[in-house]
Design a protein around this nucleic acid. Structure first.
Lengths: 227, 227
DNA sequence: GTCTATAGTCGGATAGAC
DNA sequence: GTCTATCCGACTATAGAC
């Protein structure tokens, strides 16, 4: 007993993945030093080239890790929807509830733990620098979620879920949710917040729900489009 | 005549600002090399420390340049709204039209020229890395726009424009617009687009207008919130 | 597998001629 | 003000002992 504390190889990799998710998300790829990563992970700097083939290898591994954790988290929501779809019995009223449930689950997931906050920052950064990382996240997660949402919106509106119209509308709707995460710093400034809390998220959900359910009740949209 | 082509100091600075807006927006601060910046600007690498005190000085100057150009562009819309507000005669129906006009102008501005595309990329990046640059953009532009939108939404809903409820709702609404820019790569993948065109933007406006005007027509939002 | 030490590269700022 | 050349610090990857 009491022999030198030495973590397992798997633990070394895991700690590096966590550190990478955090630091890459905050500072970007070039803005993050391998020494920082190693220090935060509590491992040696040389462990990065050894285990991941280099800094870039670690970055891509982090992207896959983010996808894996995100998929696990949304799994129950996604499976419920897919199950109903497979039965071919998805009707409007169910689609409505599933859409809202999904949005709310997404908002909870975006925010409510440090790990999740790291994940959302990492993903946000991928939006602005599409590359191999975005590819991994799109293929593994984002694309699937988006398609699923389009199925729900298409069902609600009685239209082809892969039509341009439904995709654009779904994307705009999704913006009400992801915008809260992507532009969180703007929101924080406006409300003098320094973080999200469960109570605040409930009030954000209320606002999102109102928009999704009936926008601003302005009547025929076309009257604004005839410019 | 025909003496050695030598650009003016102002031109040197301008070219560096343009190159900075483009490259910083695409690659981030650390991801961009001063040699790249100088080459794209067609000037000498040593001109960066000379004119801007260093790479970081150039970055902040770019942030101010982005604010200036953005303010100029939105000036007519903003002034029209402010003018009406000063007269104290803003009524619901006008607020509705102004809100939509503003959203549409914003969408046009986000997208429709290379310069604008560079600007929006630069701003997007600031969202994910708040720092001195975000400060400049918030103080000079984003905050003002957000407050103005809240006034419009508050007027439409007959509520205090600076109440948390109105701010959250405005932010969610604004998400339908900015989301199209922030998550453009997701949208492009889903629709097999490689860029925006005026026609595509018109169809995006249609989708945004529908959401803003009446969401998905789902009835009482509270029925989804009682979890 | 992990560690220390270091090699090798690169990038930003500077010096100084023009 | 602009240019070339260069310095100096910082970073990643590697070598090699344990």
């Amino acid at each position: 007993m009491m022999k030198k504390q030495r973590i397992s190889p798997d633990e070394t990799k895991l700690q590096l993945l966590k550190a990478g998710m955090h630091l890459f998300g905050l500072q970007g790829f070039e803005g993050t030093r391998t020494r920082e990563l190693a220090q935060m992970a509590g491992v040696n700097q040389a462990a990065i080239p050894y285990h991941f083939g280099g800094k870039e290898g670690l970055y891509l591994a982090v992207a896959r890790y983010v996808v894996k954790r995100g998929s696990d988290q949304m799994k129950s929501e996604v499976e419920m929807i897919q199950h109903t779809l497979r039965d071919g019995k998805l009707v409007k009223v169910e689609a409505e509830h599933m859409l809202m449930r999904f949005f709310f689950a997404f908002m909870d997931n975006i925010i409510l733990s440090e790990d999740l906050s790291d994940r959302s920052r990492f993903i946000l950064r991928e939006y602005s620098t599409p590359g191999a990382g975005f590819e991994i996240i799109y293929e593994g997660m984002l694309g699937k979620i988006h398609k699923l949402l389009c199925v729900l919106v298409g069902t609600i509106e009685g239209e082809n879920p892969e039509s341009e119209r439904v995709i654009l509308k779904t994307h705009a709707l999704f913006g009400t949710v992801v915008g809260n995460a992507l532009t969180r710093n703007l929101l924080f400034r406006r409300l003098d917040w320094e973080n999200f809390t469960p109570e605040r998220i409930e009030r954000m959900k209320q606002a999102v729900a109102e928009i999704v359910c009936h926008g601003l009740n302005l009547g025929d949209p076309n009257k604004y489009l005839e410019t």
